[in-house]
C-alpha cells in the first residue's frame, strides 16, 4: 500500500511538472501567444483585443493557475478558431484514436506474442534465424512507409488488391459501424505490425531468460515437456515484464498513430494536434498536450502498479527502486 501511495504522489508531482513545462514552452515564444495567433499582418489593436480576451495581459503566475484550476474542474478552455470547447473536440477525436490504438495493440499482441513464443521454442537454426530476420526488419520499418506499402497493396482505388478504404473516416462516425471499422483496418495493421515486431523481440528475450532458469528444470522434472513448461510456467513468469513492455508500448503507439492518422486522413487526436499547431490555435494546443502527457503518465503509473501486482516476488523485495 505504501508503494501505491508513493507511486501516486509521484504521478501527481510529474503531472504538475509537465504542466509547468508545457505552459512555459508556449510562453517563451518570440512575441507572445496573442501575436502568434493573430498572425503576421494583424493590426496591433487586434493583438491587444486577443490578448485581453484570452487573459494574456495578466501576470504569468495568475495565467498558469487559472489554466490549472480550469484543468482540475475539467474545463480545458475553448478553441478560438472554432469556438467549441476543447474537451468536446478532444473527446470526438479520441473516439477515433482510442479504437485505433486498441486495434493496433490487438494486432501487435497477436503477432508479437505468437511469433515470440514460436521463435523461442524453435530448435532448428534456419527457423530461428528466419524469425530473427522478421523481428529485426519489422522493427526497422518507418511507420509512414509501412502505411504506404499497405495502401499500395490493399488500398481501395490504388492498391493491387483494391479491398479496403485508405482515406478518411465516415461522417457519421461510429454510427456507421461497418465502414468506421473498415477504415481503421489498414491503419491498425500498420501500427500493429511494427510494434508487433518489437514485442516479438521482447517476448523472446523475456521468455528466453525464463527458459534458462531453475523454474523450467523444476517444471520439466515434474513431467512437463519443454513446450508445456514454456506455455504454462514460462509465460506466467514472463508476464510481469511483458505487461510493462506492452503498457509503455501502448502509450508509445501515439508516435506511430500520429503519423498514421495524418497518412490515412483520420480525424484523431494526433492529426488534430498537428492541425491545431498549424492553425496556431495555441490555447487548444496547450490543453491537448497536457491531456496527452497526463494520459502517458497515468499509463506509466498503472503499469508500475500492475507489474507489482503480477509479480508476487516483488512484494518481499527491498522497498523503493523499480526492481
Amino acid at each position: 500500500m505504501r508503494f501505491v501511495i508513493r507511486r501516486f504522489l509521484l504521478f501527481v508531482v510529474a503531472l504538475l511538472a509537465i504542466s509547468v513545462v508545457i505552459f512555459a514552452a508556449l510562453r517563451i515564444l518570440p512575441g507572445d501567444v496573442a501575436s502568434v495567433m493573430a498572425g503576421l499582418n494583424a493590426p496591433p489593436e487586434r493583438v491587444a483585443q486577443l490578448r485581453s480576451q484570452m487573459g494574456l495581459d495578466r501576470p504569468l503566475v495568475v495565467q498558469y493557475f487559472s489554466w490549472l484550476g480550469g484543468l482540475l474542474q475539467g474545463n480545458f478552455g475553448t478553441s478560438l478558431l472554432t469556438g467549441r470547447s476543447i474537451s468536446s473536440t478532444v473527446a470526438m477525436r479520441a473516439s477515433v484514436t482510442f479504437p485505433l490504438i486498441v486495434l493496433g495493440l490487438i494486432v501487435a499482441l497477436a503477432i508479437g506474442l505468437t511469433l515470440g513464443v514460436v521463435s523461442t521454442l524453435a530448435t532448428r537454426p534456419a527457423v530461428r534465424s528466419a524469425f530473427h530476420f522478421i523481428a529485426i526488419v519489422g522493427g526497422a520499418i518507418p511507420a509512414l512507409w509501412g502505411g504506404l506499402l499497405l495502401i499500395l497493396l490493399f488500398g481501395r482505388g490504388t492498391g493491387l488488391l483494391d479491398v479496403l478504404p485508405s482515406q478518411g473516416f465516415p461522417e457519421a462516425g461510429w454510427g456507421n459501424f461497418g465502414s468506421a471499422l473498415a477504415s481503421l483496418v489498414l491503419p491498425a495493421l500498420t501500427v500493429g505490425i511494427i510494434d508487433g515486431a518489437s514485442l516479438m523481440r521482447y517476448t523472446r528475450s523475456a521468455l528466453g531468460d525464463v527458459m534458462n532458469s531453475g523454474y523450467m528444470d523444476q517444471a520439466m522434472a515434474c513431467g512437463y515437456t519443454r513446450r508445456q513448461a514454456a506455455l504454462k510456467v514460462g509465460l506466467r513468469l514472463a508476464t510481469p515484464q511483458l505487461v510493462s513492455v506492452v503498457g509503455l508500448m501502448s502509450a508509445g503507439m501515439i508516435t506511430g498513430v500520429m503519423v498514421i492518422e495524418n497518412l490515412f486522413a483520420l480525424p484523431g487526436i494526433g492529426a488534430g494536434l498537428v492541425t491545431d499547431l498549424g492553425n496556431r490555435d495555441l490555447i487548444a494546443v496547450q490543453s491537448e498536450l497536457f491531456m496527452l502527457a497526463a494520459f502517458f503518465l497515468f499509463v506509466g503509473f498503472l503499469v508500475d502498479l500492475l507489474h507489482r501486482f503480477l509479480d508476487p516476488r516483488l512484494k518481499h523485495a527491498v522497498q523503493g527502486g523499480v526492481q
Binding site: L10, A17, I18, L248, G252, T255, V299, G300, D304
Partner: peptide, 8 residues
C-alpha cells in the same frame, strides 16, 4: 521513472 512514459 515518471518521465520515461512520455514519448519522444
Amino acid at each position: 521513472d515518471a518521465l520515461i512514459s512520455i514519448p519522444t
